[in-house]
Amino acid sequence: MVSGSVVRTRPHMQRMIWQDRVFHAVNLALVIVVLVVMLYPLYLVVICSVSDANLVSRGQVTLYPRGLTLDGYNAVIKNKEIWRSYVNSVLYTVSGTIISLAVTMGAAFTLSRKFPGKRLISTLFVFTMFFGGGLIPTFLTMRNVGLYNNVWVCILMGCVSVWNVMLARTYITSTIPEALYEASTLDGATQIQYFLRIVVPLCGTIIAVLSVYYGVDKWNDYWTGLIYINDRALLPLQTILKEILASLEMSREIIMSMRDNAESDAVLLQRAQIAKYCVIVVSTVPAVVLYLCMQKFFVKGVMVGSVKG
């Protein structure tokens, strides 16, 4: 009885020895440091985006917003190019993710079953994880097949990830009992009915996880726009952001969009700098919000993925 009650006592209910106290204290301190390092840069960008340009550029905004203003956001909203690319990105992300999910789940279901030719098709899939055409042959091929400078290349590029197919297949084989298949075929269901009515409804978790993977990948992709799009009207947000953010010089476009009255160039530049913070916030919020909404699914989805099938 005594030993039973000891086993049942949770460790932290017992009187702790001093080594463990030190361990917990040090561990907690380190975790808090990690949290600050991870989140402070993001927090800093957010508070700078609503602060006075002059104070920000002098490094005076560090803990909370100062000289509250929405000038930067106004400039971003007024910039037509950012707007247009934002709409493009929403379109590419939503349609791309839906197509990705449909194709991935279909392939994953098929690979979870037995059928003639399965080994050949599996090899076809897995080989692409080891070897590829490389940047230039891919570029020339896409141009040849007409996937160049149009919305299709933006929607379809990267819409099947073999890794995700394997993840979904593992999920199906490890969570859906074979008895269900036998029962439903006995009742006269075809394979496609079984897939649509039984498998898909039972795959909510993995579909949620995959929609975050595909959606965020698509939303954050600047590469397709950079390589395959010529027409500026078709560019996704991230490719436009690359021009605005990732260079040592200031984009002329954004400076001009901030000029509403006669100001000195220095003030103008500072304010354009603030717009950069705002663009970061506006472009990052959708991906992070999508993740936060879906994050309760992650533990289960990722756990299943890590158990190999």
Partner: peptide
């Protein structure tokens, strides 16, 4: 939940933050 967040920041934004 918090330490996963940076993973969802795009490479372009990451580079942009560093430039700033």
């Amino acid at each position: 939940t918090a330490v996963y967040i940076p993973h969802f920041v795009s490479t372009v934004v990451l580079a942009g933050m560093l430039y700033i």
